Simulated scan of single mutants.
Amino acid sequence: MLVDSHCHLDFPDFATELDDVVRRAGYAGVRRLVTISTRVREFDKIRAIAERFPNVWCSVGTHPQNAHEELDITVDDLVRLSEHPKVVAIGEAGLDYHYDTSPREAQEQGFRTHIAAARTTGLPLVIHARSADEDMISILREETAAGAFPAVLHCFSSGRALAEAGIALGLYVSFSGILTFRNSPEIRAIAKDMPSDRILVETDAPFLAPVPHRGKRNEPAFTRETAKVLAETRGVSLEEIASQTTENFLRLFSKVPAEEA
């Protein structure tokens, strides 16, 4: 069994065939999906999808690109919404200096709010980090010193220093279709060296479809392609990667039942 630990089933790309998308995931052996929140004000849509499918869970949070729009969202708001039985994570939140669509001060403020919510609830924080490695490392070290919290560096595409700093602080690292791209040897080298008990797989669907689907709309069923490349990179079988990443997922996303629905 595989888990897509990060997808966006509420995006318009899936609106006309959501049932089929979830069904195809199951056929591919992807038995659990987490659909990730990017705006708290649109959380109702996320929650409705998670309630609709027994094998889908969700998070609650604000993407860093939207941070300036939701600075009024408080820790208490996130904690309250996370009490829903289908909410298994906080985020995604973090820093994105690649697009800089939200002021960096707003991104940091939002990020720290989400960290506090993860610390309070014990739910894992789904971290978005792009082109912001130094500031990300600094904030993670500072906040962990103030009190540990569970977290995953999702869709990892950063440098080795951030991966190693995250592992040292107790975080997990999740790999997406980027791992399969021909121009990603550095990401594969990092994936090869990560501790086996700290790795996850995801799609970030509808984005970043893995080879051989690159250029198409991504979907949770394609988690299997990323898992294959992760297995090849680490010199183990697909079955071993599936078992290990699922075990890791259930340890980190501890609110998800171990038994299939």
Rank of each mutant, 00 (worst) to 15 (best):
D19A: 01
V21F: 13
V22K: 08
R23M: 03
R24W: 14
G26R: 10
V34I: 15
S37Q: 02
T38V: 11
T38C: 09
R39V: 00
E42P: 07
E42L: 05
K45W: 06
A48H: 07
I49L: 09
A50N: 04
R52Y: 06
P54Q: 04
N55E: 01
V56H: 11
W57L: 01
S59D: 05
S59K: 07
V60I: 11
V60T: 14
Q65Y: 06
Q65T: 02
N66P: 03
N66H: 13
A67R: 08
E70T: 01
D72M: 04
I73V: 15
V75E: 15
V79D: 14
L81T: 05
S82Y: 00
S82V: 03
E83F: 08
P85C: 04
A89S: 08
A89M: 03
D100K: 09
S102Y: 13
S102I: 07
E105I: 01
A106S: 07
Q107V: 07
G110P: 05
H114Y: 07
L123T: 02
L125Q: 13
V126I: 15
H128I: 00
A129P: 10
R130Q: 02
R130M: 00
A132G: 07
A132R: 01
D133I: 06
S138R: 14
I139L: 02
G147L: 07
F149P: 12
L153D: 12
C155E: 10
C155S: 13
